[in-house]
Write a protein that binds this DNA or RNA. Sequence first.
DNA 1: ATTGGCACTCGATTCCGGTGAGTGCCAACG
DNA 2: CGTTGGCACTCACCGGAATCGAGTGCCAAT
Lengths: 348, 348
Amino acid sequence: MVSERGLQVLRAIVQDYVDTREPVGSKAIVDRHAFGVSAATIRNDMAQLEDEELIAAPHTSSGRVPTDKGYRVFVDHLAELRPLSAAQRSAISSFLEGSGDLDDVLTRTVRALTSLTGQVAIVQYPSFARARVTHVELVQLGGGRMLVIVVTDTGRVSQRVAYVRDEFDDSELARIRAELGTLLVGRPVRDGLERIASRIAAPDEHAIAREKATIVIAKAVAEELEHFRQDRLVMAGSANLARSEADFRGSIYPLLEAIEEQVTILRLMGEMVADDQGLAASIGRENEPFGLGEASVLASDYDVTGARTRARVGLLGPTRMDYPTNLAAVRAVARYLTRILEEDESGR
Amino acid sequence: MVSERGLQVLRAIVQDYVDTREPVGSKAIVDRHAFGVSAATIRNDMAQLEDEELIAAPHTSSGRVPTDKGYRVFVDHLAELRPLSAAQRSAISSFLEGSGDLDDVLTRTVRALTSLTGQVAIVQYPSFARARVTHVELVQLGGGRMLVIVVTDTGRVSQRVAYVRDEFDDSELARIRAELGTLLVGRPVRDGLERIASRIAAPDEHAIAREKATIVIAKAVAEELEHFRQDRLVMAGSANLARSEADFRGSIYPLLEAIEEQVTILRLMGEMVADDQGLAASIGRENEPFGLGEASVLASDYDVTGARTRARVGLLGPTRMDYPTNLAAVRAVARYLTRILEEDESGR
DNA sequence: ATTGGCACTCGATTCCGGTGAGTGCCAACG
DNA sequence: CGTTGGCACTCACCGGAATCGAGTGCCAAT
């Protein structure tokens, strides 16, 4: 078992090691922290911490370094979030003020978070699977092109060009639009996909002429809806990995690759489980299954009023990172984001 | 002056150094290349090359390494493009087949190029400033939201949500739509911006009621047009920089940052001047003004039929790269891309 | 439980001589 | 005059020995 003071020693080790990147010895601890006991005493505590595998010595006679398990205990029990400075708060607001559409807000959010923490920042798009379709719009572009637009009640708009060979006069177009409208408007995106599938499977015998085009258009809409279902990320600050390269034993290649692929990070962020405050952390080896065993990911939920769902904003960096500050930053940004999206939803 | 054989020696040095990453000595050259002369003779040639600053010795008694100037001569006079293998050609087609909209094609292009070369691939969006507006569409979303859609003859579609407080009945909406239509349709994007500006400056006294909303909408359209004018990039493969990290004396941080910012690379690609084949290379220190003095950028023009303009596809990597192969890859991909976009334009 | 003392470990640093790849130069050669 | 073999010289790159010192582990005393 680890004594109370032992835990304080662990906290000191984590803090100092994050500060200096150097293994910290018993002497350094009594110097930098007012424990009121001698180095020898600290050494005894350290021996216990080592038994518990919370710290480790890189080699026989050197200072100690927190293990991943040590970081975990630190984050769960020892770390109070370091409140943001006034300057940091105002930095967030200045990044986020003057909201535009969702893309815009999320892009600015991710920039704010990366500039605040110096880490790779990640914002998950809310999943739109539960959003409801409010509009389906068709616009002929000429040359057999048809622009298909789908709008949901979450304010997300997305379009795609379908290639139908024929031109339609206005009334025909209106009919197709109306049909798609009754099929989809007011329905969740998820349902829409099924309804389109069964509509395609049961063609309308009475309207052979335009049936082919209708199906092409319906397929385009379906592709678009599928797009809504996919989760996406916005990220920023990947260059920061190069600065903290020394913290990665191996190359930063897998990290950069994961960032580019997105899918790994998407899964990882999805699987993390948040505490009662909506905060989650996945530390070092815990990320091994994702090939990111030398990195930590912090995340915080944010609410998306319109989408009746939550998504996450997070941050990726070396295991040796400043958890109190970064956790606070992630939480603060998530809260700001929730608020901005609320205003967006109600205001105007 | 450097003799004919001297240039062949330079070629050998570049090739071997790119292969092995090790300074190449006179002995190694006579071993690996059939020059039919002795090492001493090669040494004399090397002394000349060094006088011309085409090669340099890392330290007094070691093999030689090409200087940036040496790479330049190699690329301009010595490098024949290495034709792509059948496998590579089919890899490109398989990446690019089944085209979708422009975004889609460019994304796949950039993936093809990065997987082909193992470098960072870059595709410049064609500049849409000269494209003509073909449609302006307005869709009411409810809650005072108005969706504004702009379509150009290049097939690019882009939308934005404007916040007008009021709702409009269909005839009013049609009037606003018609007004914007006459203002913009058939005009180049560039002109459209000016016309909107003067329209806003001269409000319509007869229709005070809807004038405010019209201006809000016009502004949204203008923002959207502005967006069209901005050049953009798609990139892929930035993780590859981590693999060739050894080729960068300093950190890869500035590289990654430039990739994330895009604007530096945009400027650089814009300023490169292409030869008669549409190929361009900017090597090592030539990129110093952009903070990328340890990297090289290769680029090739491609045609965008609809946009009546050209744009570039390119590639970023360490100065020590395989120029013949990479140049060939860039050129091949640019040609494929031109062809695909032509088919897109005519076919369907 | 805490502390001072002490022997011990082991990475890091420095120094040193040997090795070898590679050069520069020169005199000789066709 | 271009080419060549020979040769002295340079210097990065080991590998090993010596030294240093931060930091530990253990123990006996308090």
